[in-house]
């Protein structure tokens, strides 16, 4: 009980930590975009694709949402080299997170697609829109407006999930925290500082995404 907190000792490392934060953000943004693209594709297949493809997407989603992201990345990073497929740590984590995010986002987007009214699609057809135009002007705006809160939630959870990249040696925020921990041994100080940084970053992300949702899709998302 004779421990004295010395936040001063880790103050010089703050720029180093913020650099790590940039890598964390890059990971989360890239995997979110990748997951969105894959997820949108899968959601459309799942809703109106060929029955066999639809079944395959269902299996994919069930498998990836029912297994931990950590072990998925373990398989990609440590398991695939058995078959001669080697990834750098960053690439392995990025692929794992994207595949994992795609599964969750498929479910979110599919639920959103289900809320597009049939009348709206009929109206678009009456106006002579082709399928792409319908997607661009009717389905997607509606989808994002409905799904925005869930998507924000998913993005925040993914930002928190990037912390497991440190386990594979990616020097993002948590990885750099471990580095500083092993040079200064100021464990409590360093990990509480990192926790505060995560809180700040996710708060900013929540507010930004809410503003984007309001501005671009007129989603009714409370900013705070």
């Amino acid at each position: 009980m004779h421990y004295v907190l010395h936040y001063g000792q880790i103050a010089p490392y703050l720029p180093y930590l913020i650099g790590g934060m940039a890598i964390s953000l890059a990971l989360s943004v890239l995997s979110f975009i990748g997951g969105m693209v894959l997820g949108l594709f899968f959601a459309v297949i799942r809703n109106e694709g060929h029955p066999i493809l639809s079944r395959l997407v269902r299996i994919y989603v069930a498998f990836f949402t029912n297994t931990p992201q950590l072990v998925q990345i373990y398989v990609i990073y440590f398991g695939l080299p058995d078959f001669g497929i080697l990834f750098s740590p960053f690439a392995a984590v990025l692929i794992g997170m994207t595949l994992n995010a795609a599964a969750y986002l498929t479910e979110i987007l599919r639920a959103g697609l289900g809320t597009v009214h049939a009348q709206e699609l009929d109206a678009a057809e009456t106006l002579g829109m082709n399928r792409l135009q319908t997607l661009r002007h009717v389905t997607l705006p509606h989808l994002f407006r409905v799904a925005m809160p869930a998507l924000t939630n998913q993005y925040i959870l993914m930002t928190l999930g990037t912390s497991m990249a440190s386990i594979f040696g990616v020097e993002e925020l948590t990885g750099r925290a471990f580095n500083i921990n092993s040079t200064t041994f100021r464990s409590i100080e360093i990990f509480t500082t990192v926790a505060v940084l995560y809180v700040v970053v996710t708060f900013i992300a929540t507010i930004l995404l809410a503003l984007v949702g309001r501005w671009a899709f007129r989603a009714r998302v409370p900013v705070l």
Binding site: L160, S163, M164, S187, I188, V194, A195, V199
Partner: peptide, 22 residues
Amino acid sequence: ILRRVPFLITLMIFFFGAQVLG
């Protein structure tokens, strides 16, 4: 706050916190 801290970081804080507090 607790919903915005990664589980790994929470684990580490409790892990080292228990050490520090003896």
